[in-house]
Nucleic acid binder design. Structure first.
Lengths: 221, 221
DNA sequence: TAATATCTTTAGACAAGTCTAAAAATATAT
DNA sequence: ATATATTTTTAGACTTGTCTAAAGATATTA
């Protein structure tokens, strides 16, 4: 069975909202995420429910069935593997690859992404630090990955991911040199606005609470 | 300006027929090539004419404008570069890549294929031996590429392409070991059906006129 | 050149996905 | 608990690309 790009995007969006806010995704949330109208969502949601990819009760929102979840995870797998390819092989910056991967993730071929995965030597995390599900849908975890704002003064860690993949945010990080794999140390914290001074490659920079709560850190030791 | 997958496929099909049979492509020929109905073709052809990608007069067939031709060539460029990637990097066989490349060729990104082209070190020919247009639409030529059936008895050459990219044909070639880059020599020809005996890697095989007229050979010396 | 065959276009319909506007259900506030 | 606001659904319409069936051109053949 094969699904349309649109169906796949709905499933992916539902999966994303579910894993952020728990089950039962509302029509409006979906409309928001997919940049469409609530009425369109209602239509599509009925269609997906008929195909048993989601459960749907009028006015009660939707949630993925096992089958729907498998499909969503697979699309995410495709997306992230393509992102690795674009960054590692085609030398894109990590903040340039999202839109292209949005297209590539829908290419219909059982084999293609598996071969790409071989070619890339089975990466576990994408260039944003997000985990890449394996073929069976298992999602790798990281030991002790926490948000930067949970790091106490004096503690160190390595940037391994970002929570917010918004383009402007990624460009800000690029600008500030806060890129994946960099080692950082918390030097000071200002109570009044929760901003922090951190050390990165011998330089000290100040970042807002907004920023520190969106950076994922792998704590050193 | 960006075009739909369907529009791009029509342009590509028109280009393909034009370069095989000359200008003025008939509705039926297009319907045939695109595996659709003549009435659908008429509809789409009107749309493309309105966008000035083709010229169209009722009952007189169509032909590409300069602009339409540029787009068609660009799609072909995309297709062939992706094929090189699939074969060289992902280790597909040359007869397995067509359908996937049909999808990949429509990915919308100015930059993507150029970067891929860099990554692949600017190949001039795809795995089927077809020339890859450059970014400006220039199509590389080969010196002395001829059809195998134009080769006289005793002459030698290297297989550099196929005219017919039909899947069954490609699989037949694979089976017979008549793959790209192989050196062959014409040993004998049977007048009554124009079949030939050729030598390839110390083996002698018989091929029909059908086959020898669809193999492109680069003549030795 | 008249009759027939083939090709092409038109007219009207359909499916997918979207939209607006209005109605129905649910949630919130006084 | 009633009024108000918000969310969700329905109804009907639009677009893209397709189709069938029938009508209109063009080509072929006698």
């Amino acid at each position: 069975m094969s699904y349309t790009k649109t169906e796949e995007n709905y499933l992916k969006a539902i999966y994303g909202i579910e894993s952020k806010f728990g089950e039962s995704v509302s029509t409006n949330m979906l409309a928001n995420k997919l940049e469409t109208k609530a009425s369109s969502v209602t239509d599509m949601v009925k269609k997906l429910a008929k195909k048993e990819l989601i459960t749907y009760e009028k006015y009660q929102g939707v949630s993925l069935t096992e089958c729907g979840k498998d499909i969503a995870i697979n699309i995410i797998r495709n997306h992230r593997i393509w992102e690795v390819f674009l960054v590692e092989k085609l030398k894109y910056k990590w903040d340039e690859v999202h839109e292209i991967a949005e297209q590539l993730e829908h290419i219909k071929s059982e084999e293609l992404v598996d071969r790409l995965d071989d070619f890339l030597e089975h990466p576990s995390f994408d260039p944003h630090g997000d985990p890449i599900p394996d073929k069976k849908g298992n999602i790798p975890t990281r030991k002790e990955a926490i948000q930067l704002n949970e790091l106490a003064i004096g503690e160190e860690g390595i940037i391994v991911g970002v929570k917010n993949t918004n383009n402007e945010f990624l460009q800000y990080l690029e600008e500030m040199n806060l890129t994946l794999g960099k080692k950082i140390k918390v030097e000071k914290e200002f109570d009044f606005d929760k901003s922090k001074i951190i050390k990165i490659e011998k330089e000290s920079v100040t970042i807002s609470k907004e920023v520190s709560s969106n950076l994922i850190i792998e704590k050193s030791q």
